[in-house]
Write a protein that binds this DNA or RNA. Structure first.
Lengths: 117, 117
DNA sequence: CATTCTATCTTGTAATGCAAGATAGAATGC
DNA sequence: GCATTCTATCTTGCATTACAAGATAGAATG
């Protein structure tokens, strides 16, 4: 039971899924980089490091699914780069969620114990 | 709504998931390379090309999750390379399925419309 | 004997997650 | 002052995977 193989697999499993997760976390309200890390861990138990979140956010912008803007610094908060979902992003969420659920249904079908042909 | 971006995303989504799907399809009975392609499409609607299945099967063996053997040719069938799940593979299926479901639960939590913090 | 079909395998490309490190401003401690 | 720590953003390099495209080979068909 090689544990590293399983860990390696989990890294692959997260590919694609993280993008959808971040987009959905962005939907409830605008957030900034590290806030996604905190929010995803708190809301969904997803632990994602900084080396993942920033390139991912850049990608979302490049695909037109998110927009970014800098916040004005206040007495308590430094300037932060916030991200907002675009209409195209909303459409992407709907499409991706559909694909996700289809894949999940496929997995559960295969996981069923009933002897299938 | 850039369709290529979505297609690119779906390729990423399948990473990891395909390995689990193939392992589960192997659990019901031993199969050979192209048979997985046919079985996954028929049973789960998953369409996977040859360029994916063979490297994937080699990987399963390298991780100790599957074993391979050549079948004897008969009058109707050519010699084919069959794959069988190992006990370690069974354990891996259980572990991976658990991770999959945990990730799915996280996605559904994020997909929930209820206004969360 | 060329073609087609099944079956396996290889090569090269594109994409992503992430560890590790770089940068920078603000606050804290000595 | 000066070093340290904390938050926050971003970059670089590595490992891994999906897959299109092509290579190989035996058997059957025309």
């Amino acid at each position: 039971m090689d544990d590293t193989a399983l860990a390696r697999w989990e890294v692959q499993l997260r590919k694609g899924a993280l993008e959808l997760a971040v987009l959905m976390a962005m939907r409830s309200r605008d957030r900034y980089g590290l806030e996604f890390v905190e929010a995803l861990r708190r809301l969904a138990g997803i632990d994602l490091p900084e080396g993942t979140i920033y390139p991912l956010l850049i990608r979302l912008i490049k695909d037109g699914w998110a927009q970014a803007y800098w916040s004005q610094p206040t007495q308590t908060d430094p300037p932060r780069k916030f991200y907002r979902v675009t209409p195209a992003g909303e459409a992407a969420i709907a499409a991706m969620l559909g694909r996700w659920r289809r894949l999940d249904a496929a997995m559960e079908t295969l996981a069923g114990k009933d002897p299938f042909e």
